[in-house]
Nucleic acid binder design. Sequence first.
RNA 1: GGGCUCGUAGCUCAGGUGGUUAGAGCGCACGCCUGAUAAGCGUGAGGUCGGACGUUCAACUCGUCCCGGGCCCA
Length: 967
Amino acid sequence: MSSKTEDDRAKDYRATLFLPQTEFPMKAGLPEAEPKWLARWESMNLYGRIRDAAKGRPLFILHDGPPYANRDIHSGTGLNKILKDFVVRSQGMLGKDAPYVPGWDCHGLPIEWKIEEKYRAEGKSKDDVPIDRLRRDCRDFATGWIDVQREQFKRLGCMGEWEHPYTTMNYRAEATIAGELHKFVANGLLYRGFRPVMWSPVEKTALAEAEVEYQEKTSPTIYVKFPVVGGRDDDHVEDAAVVIWTTTPWTIPGNRAIAFSKFMDYSVYEISAVQDGAFGTVGEHLVLADALSAQVATHSKITIRKLNTVRNPEDILCVHPFRGQGYDFDVPLLPGDHVTADTGTGFVHTAPGHGEDDFELMLKTFHNYAAENPDAFNIVAEDGSFRAHVPLFAGKRILTPEGKDGDANGAVIKELIAAGKLLAKGSLRHSYPHSWRSKAPVIFRATPQWFAAMDKPFKGSNGKTLRDIAMQAIRDTRWYPAAGANRIGAMVEGRPDWVLSRQRAWGVPLAIFVEKKTGKILDDAEVNARITTAFEQEGADAWFNSPPSRFLGNARNPDDYEQVRDILDVWFDSGSTHVFTVEQPIEPSWPRKDRADLYLEGSEQHRGWFQSSLLESCGTQGRAPYEAVLTHGFVLDEQGRKMSKSLGNTVLPQTIAEKNGADILRLWTASSDFTEDLRIGQDIIKTNVDAYRRLRNTIRFMLANLAGFDEAERIAAEQMPELERYILAKLAELDALVRHGYAEYDFNRVFNALFNFCTNELSAFYFDIRKDSLYCDRVDSARRRAARPVTDEVFRRVVTWLAPILCFTMEEAWTLRFPDDSVHLQLFPETPAEWHAPALIEKWNRIRTLRRVVTGALEIKRRDKVIGASLEAAPVLYLTEQSDADILKGIDFAEIAITSGAHVAAREAPPDAFSLPDVPGVAAMFHHADGDKCARCWMILPEVGRNPSHPDLCNRCADAVGATEAV
RNA sequence: GGGCUCGUAGCUCAGGUGGUUAGAGCGCACGCCUGAUAAGCGUGAGGUCGGACGUUCAACUCGUCCCGGGCCCA
């Protein structure tokens, strides 16, 4: 009975407290809430309002690297766009005008291939379809995926110019790209040459490096004898044969030389015995590398003995194994760096039309080789068959139209046996390049292609080459992390000329004419203007739809010119995006700047977009298109393995957004070190959900204790208790850290600092202490009057600081207090200079250490079931250091320790006092708090019971209740 | 095989120019509170810094090699 009365009375006092009140739910419900925020932002034109507000501020351009418009986004694209959103939002809140124009890469083989597949499914070949129809279908396909990806990116909270993105297939973009190529014509960097390129006989096209993938394949291996017809007498190579090894027998008709290594030893060997099935005969003389002779003997089923060392391999002259059958040329031996001792014979068969190294070696040795020996580059037709003029093998196919092995290898081997030039044959399973679309093997095939010259001084370059200029531009760029400069530098240093042409349909054409008589590229400003104007109005389709006379004009005879029908490498497209997006925007709403402040992509783009943009820009304007480049790592699974469908460990950003909320994915992004590879999986998501809840609850507590906060409550810092001034000092400290962190794109540092602040300073310390004052003090008490504005300051900062990361949740919190506003329209609040107080922070760090000793002492008593709540205690703190005693002067230590009382004794502690090993000179002795429990604030105080009108209250509460009742 | 890069507690991260018992948060265990309550507070147990050799009076921090992961090439 009596306990019920007490309960009722306690209930009554609840009404006299200022308990937290808020609409901000503990449970976020992000998957449902986020789309509503997106709709609200769209209807209020938030992005446009941010642009308006930022007008006149320093421009910060993050130029978007365009994703390819052919599939759903994945973890990598999601990570990339979220990081960009962090950058754009934080730069804006730091006081910059930071627009974001997203873009898409639309041309190229993958989309074209997709459309061809569709045609095939309908029983049509792509040759049955007119090119403008194919291009229209490709355009529609890309448009469809842009729409899909746009919604997926927006769902992740990424903010930008979504209504006016850039695309490489925009008519004005296509015109710009064609115009950029014309600049390469004008300055002399563009040239046509023969070159072995990766060629897919199945697709009948040259492939870019990015378009091939390596798969296991079984190839025939052959050892072939090249008869020696000349050499130094002391080498005793007469009557011998130099032996080569290759996995591509079909390249033997293309052989024109043999490469050897200057760093290997070679000898003449005699076959002393043969086993069954050997092709060699006893007494034959072979030239082999010593390091590989034993291996060759084994593979050839022969026994050999060394006759003498060959001192001058470069003097050896051989003939082709098919000499007398249409292959009547000499085969010289040339030193090559690419010759190694791991497999083969130490001699590398060299077919300049069918290998990169082979081609380089021939041209290094014979500068005009390609021009003087066209037959060496004209052996294989585009479908992978030998041309009609090739002796012995006309019409034989390297690959069937389906991509299987053809009859060419077999035919070559058969003829080698017939000629007595085969030493051995076998097979080898090895990694071999395949087309990433058709999955069929590719070959090296010499084709006429258009190139940008890396090593040729050009008009306006002051004698420098494109490579020189690009290397300098790399040095002039800031790379985050710094190693990026090495990485791209090594690639640019060693890369060959840029192959710009593709024998495809879906892309921007190399919109140029070649004068038939001279072979020169037409460089006529008027013609070029007609071309780009037509592209602007009708798209690049105009190139394929119009008669050449439309561009050549009346002054030129179309019969005198060849219209180039190749299309441009898509990397040239994306390498040109800076021109029409940043430097000369084709859309009026995009701000113009001389160059982008930042490119931000995965580290694989050192080879891709960073490099193509660099070369394009260096070729046309002599410098990089960016001030700085930031790279991120790859998203791996929880074990650090790459994601793959077969492993079933893929995590899609859309899935996380739907299940947990985009803010969780964004929090994961911020909590990871994106400069390295990132891991994600169920457990890691859960960790971030937990972290999210902590942040959310901290903010919820602030909102709840700021209910009805009025500007008039604000008071000056110097009027506040030290505890409040300590929090303000921490805010000042954080302010610098957050600004610096965002400026350096160090989101992880920002997140960690803010999270730890919320946990350690706010939740476990400041709020825990101030709860009593906020709930129980009179409205006009000095403590409460200070705690409310400080909470307000904390709220404004924590919420704006986190807004770039948790863009949805911070908006939810902000609008609860400022309903018609948006947190995303705010700048990071300025910090008053007087808040800075490093000495105060140091002092309070010590106070918190002293507090730990008391907490420890209470924990013992709690464990012993002596007390439960800390308010049951009134400990004594013994301090032997005078400095500690000084620190606590004027501080109510009971308030700090959340006890009902506390005494500070500046003397040696009794032996049974509690102390911490790492805090010498400090000890705490537990004492029960004296008196009765105040029914309102739950403190145990001697005064409770002495006030006749409020017998169950302490003095403070009696006063507070009285004040309330008076109202 | 080559270039670049990473490997600190179960997880996510800190640890300028080498120098006392390697830090934080989360998670976990245990306890408290029940006026932030599918919350809040406290205490505690977990690493010898991927491995092995070196350099040094002294190495997580420098060097070499090895193992494992990643990107880009071949």
